[in-house]
Amino acid sequence: MESSAAAASPLSAVQAQFIQGGVAMVVASSSAQRLPSQARAVGCSVSSDRRRVTMLLRRSQCAALLEDIARSRALAVVFCQPSTHRTLQIKARDAVAQPPASVDAAALSRQADGFHRELAPLGYSAEWTRALLGYAPDDLVAVSFTPLEIFSQTPGPRAGERVA
């Protein structure tokens, strides 16, 4: 069951690990007037069958984005690893925003630490990363979706190519 369910998700195990590994994450949607909205996410979790991805965002930073997702259910998320420039974009059409069922503070902390390890060699302090990813638990909102299309955006001639 597990393998067939996983096979149905376009998200590979390697990609799932990558997007949960402490990379930069930004979620975007758009209004009825096609005005784009975007906000940085502080956490990402993937269901065990890889069919559902949940991003954690700070509600105070993304009012327009949440409105747009509620209206269209369409979103795009970009994940980027600073040290390698490896970049993935995932698109979905069934996104739902809701209060997080539970906040795994340890997992968020692991991702922030991972992100900091990426940025430290570039000269950014731990304080800087904490400021960028800092959150109040009651400010968090969970945006969940089923990955529909996956694109590689790693800079180079193949940037923008659909990979799944």
Binding site: A24, V26, V27, A28, S29, S30, R34, L35, P36, S37, Q38, D68, S72, A74, L75, A76, V77, V78, C80, P82, T87, Q89, K91, Q153, P155
Partner: peptide, 20 residues
């Protein structure tokens, strides 16, 4: 610090990417 740019296609599909 790399910036991100979000755009939207004619059909309403959003797109987000890093820009140098």
């Amino acid at each position: 610090v790399p910036s991100t740019i979000a755009t939207c296609a004619q059909d309403g599909t959003p797109n987000v990417t890093y820009v140098s």
